[in-house]
């Protein structure tokens, strides 16, 4: 594999892993939502994310050996090979925590896909353009809940503020870059993530303001996702998700 293809492969895995892990987390809400309608809404977002993951994995397989499938990439890599950001693997916590995690990620994805919609790589460009429509809805859905919870009861305000404070240290990981980025930025396939940090933060500040949530002051940062350095939660997610494929090697489902 030449170096550009190698970088593209790695970059697609990042996008796919983020979507898959967050989609899997959201699927945990199945039959546990605060209302029946919200159960459907969370599952819808989960389905969008898993669909996006599948598309990025499929593109990634074009850079691998002939027999590799999207499912192989999702179900047969171990935690050190997953390159998702540590934010998305965090446990769901309560509804406020899940919504906050979703909001922080969807805001990031919105800016990333907006930029990738101008990628010099046609497939990335196409997938980002399609994904952006979904992500915009996720952003709208989560930001409105943020505003409701922030302006709801004392309890909901306390919970949503706690979620912001607690998750803040994981957000820096989304903007981490390595040699993969350097190479792809040169070819206008992707962007320098630092250019979307300010727009991301502006959105966060704007919605937090309406939701009367204080911007966290935590300067701690927990990073490492793109190097395969994760929090302990990811291993358990994979254990469960990959169980059948691991228990019955080679079986067709």
């Amino acid at each position: 594999m030449n170096s550009t293809n190698n970088a593209l492969y790695n970059y697609c895995l990042r996008l796919a892993d983020n979507n898959l892990i967050l989609g899997q987390r959201l699927a945990e809400w199945c039959s546990q939502g605060p209302t029946l309608e919200e159960d459907l809404a969370l599952t819808n977002i989960s389905l969008d994310l898993i669909g996006q993951a599948e598309s990025f994995y499929e593109f990634a397989t074009t850079f691998t050996e002939a027999n590799c499938t999207a499912d192989d990439l999702a179900f047969l890599r171990s935690e050190r090979e997953f390159v998702n950001n540590v934010l998305v693997e965090q446990p769901n916590g309560d509804f406020a925590y899940t919504i906050m995690k979703q909001f922080l990620f969807s805001t990031f994805a919105k800016h990333l896909y907006t930029a990738l919609a101008n990628s010099s790589n046609q497939t990335i460009c196409g997938l980002a353009t399609k994904g952006l429509k979904e992500v915009n809805y996720h952003y709208m859905h989560s930001s409105q809940w943020l505003i409701r919870l922030g302006n709801g009861t004392d309890k909901s305000k306390e919970k949503i503020q706690f979620a912001a404070n607690d998750l803040w240290c994981f957000t820096k990981d989304m903007f981490e870059m390595n040699s993969v980025d350097t190479l792809l930025i040169e070819q206008n396939i992707t962007i320098n993530l630092s250019t979307i940090y300010t727009p991301w933060k502006n959105d966060i500040e704007q919605v937090f303001k309406i939701a009367t949530i204080d911007l966290p002051t935590d300067t701690n940062k927990i990073i490492g996702g793109i190097k395969g350095i994760h929090t302990e939660h990811l291993g358990h997610i994979l254990c469960e998700m990959q169980y059948l494929q691991r228990a019955h090697p080679g079986a067709k489902w």
Partner: peptide, 20 residues
Amino acid sequence: SVHAADKNMALQNARDVYTR
């Protein structure tokens, strides 16, 4: 029909329930 607390929620719930 759907249940919702406010207008935005009603619209989004309708979208998620009836236009999948």
